[in-house]
Design a protein around this nucleic acid. Structure first.
Length: 455
DNA sequence: AACGATTCCAACCGCGGAGAG
DNA sequence: CCTCTCCGCGGTTGGAATCGT
């Protein structure tokens, strides 16, 4: 049958990727998008199979990847999600912006399993080991909530020492993303009720939500808890600003913003600040805010203009979160008591952005309606982004040389805090470390450093 | 310093689903 | 329907890095 024609083709390289290969792939995808993966290697001049390219892109080159160790919140979330979803790594990953299924799987196998066992919890069933050993219940129970609560209690006691926010607060983001909106009645409460109390939220609903919304990675990214770009912080615009390119005009600028983040893998998500605003660390004070200097909840580059009507919060900027239940039917939940800015020229762009203050869960119905309306007007364009963000991006920047675009996107790829908390580009692998001096990367590093004012 | 054991993680493999013809 | 191809997912592996003796 030859299921994977690439598998038996000789001459194809296997194993670790060289920096040159990375560069080729990155350039190609940045420029043209991946399209059909099987044709990518040929077009990009790589001696790899399409599968390998895809994997490399998803697990390493994708610009929106968050690097570094998992925070306690992330670990907790993974455990929670695993309790409900089992080994559905891709779906778990969909709830952890910037993390790949592979990464999460590795973490689980190498770390979390052990941790759970040490705590006396069976990592498969998420029940107390003693119970499992007694053979009381084989397989996964239909009622997960109590077991998960056991885990959470243990985890709470462990992780609450340093965090002022409650565990529920810290874990509220993800659940709210898949909070059922069957009738809209649960939306705000659920944020803190999932798993811990399970009051209005069954596992089945939860699963339904997942199963129906994530037939593919991209789709699940779109539909689920989404990284939130920052109101007033314009990822791509900043890139342009640092590169002296003129900004797209208002009507086009919408192209640059992600409502849910994920469809903009290539763009907004890769922005160094994005991960901050994303959902994993609901509490701005949590300990591992990888991308944020000073633990602030969002970081606003000084070079960026902020809409005059944006409102300061203890955590920085406001934004709105979109939680689309599917591509054509979305509900947007304001997560703050702040009213929508309806007068902004970029209103429709921001129509679904929320405030990242997860401790506040006031839902404004009018706001939801308003936002839904606005959101819907963006739908067709949004759909295009979903299917080919890169080419959309490319077509939006006709005036910019592809080369430059490539560099800009790449620039934001891997940013890690330096010792002072400044965000510096980081080429992750050892392979890459060797090539950091290549002009391809170093130019961007310089640019980025300049943009951040750190040298 | 040398060596073996262990850990970690990037990458591979094989399967199943979806879609086109 | 059937066949074929492509894609994505989850399990597994290989090897580099780290740890312990």
């Amino acid at each position: 049958m030859g299921r994977h024609s690439c598998c038996y083709k000789q001459k194809l390289r296997k194993g670790l990727w060289s920096p040159e290969e990375d560069e080729k792939l990155l350039r190609h995808i940045t420029k043209y998008g991946h399209g059909c993966w099987s044709s990518v290697p040929k077009q990009a001049g790589l001696q790899r199979c399409g599968k390998s390219c895809r994997l490399r892109w998803i697990n390493y080159l994708r610009p929106d990847l968050k690097r570094g160790t998992f925070s306690q919140e992330e670990e907790n979330l993974i455990i929670e999600l695993h309790a409900v979803l089992g080994n559905r790594w891709s779906q778990i990953a969909a709830q952890l912006p910037g993390r790949t299924d592979n990464e999460i799987k590795n973490l689980w196998n190498s770390c979390l399993k052990k941790k759970l066992r040490q705590k006396g919890i069976d990592p498969v069933t998420h029940k107390p080991l003693s119970e499992v050993e007694n053979g009381e219940d084989n397989g996964r129970s239909q009622e997960k909530a109590p077991e998960v609560s056991n885990e959470l209690n243990l985890l709470k006691s462990e992780s609450s020492k340093s965090d002022s926010a409650s565990y529920e607060q810290r874990t509220s983001i993800s659940p709210k993303a898949y909070a059922p909106e069957v009738d809209g009645s649960c939306s705000s409460k659920i944020e803190s009720n999932f798993v811990t109390t399970n009051n209005c939220y069954s596992k089945d609903l939860f699963l339904d939500r997942f199963m129906s919304s994530s037939s593919s990675r991209q789709e699940s990214y779109t539909n689920s808890c989404q990284p939130l770009d920052l109101m007033g912080n314009f990822p791509i615009q900043m890139s342009y600003a640092t590169n002296d390119h003129s900004l797209p005009n208002d009507s086009n600028s919408g192209h640059w913003f992600s409502q849910t983040g994920r469809p903009f893998d290539m763009n907004s998500d890769q922005f160094p600040f994005n991960a901050v605003a994303t959902s994993i660390n609901p509490t701005p004070t949590s300990t591992t805010n990888l991308f944020l200097p000073n633990n602030s909840f969002c970081y606003k580059p000084s070079s960026l203009a902020v809409p005059s009507d944006s409102v300061s919060t203890p955590y920085g900027s406001h934004y709105w979160e979109a939680s689309a239940s599917n591509n054509s039917n979305s509900s947007i939940r304001s997560n703050s008591s702040t009213e929508l800015r309806s007068s902004s020229p970029l209103n429709n762009i921001f129509s679904s952005w929320g405030l990242a203050d997860c401790s506040i869960s006031t839902t404004t119905k009018e706001a939801q309606i308003h936002m839904m309306e606005n959101h819907n007007t963006e739908e067709p364009k949004w759909d295009e982004y979903l299917h080919n963000p890169i080419s959309m991006l490319a077509s939006s920047v006709q005036n910019q040389a592809p080369e430059s675009l490539c560099n800009e996107i790449k620039t934001s790829m891997h940013l890690v805090p330096d010792t002072l908390g400044a965000m510096l580009p980081h080429i992750h692998t050892k392979q890459h470390e060797q090539s950091q001096t290549s002009s391809f990367f170093s130019k961007d590093i310089q640019k980025l450093r300049a943009a951040f004012g750190h040298m």
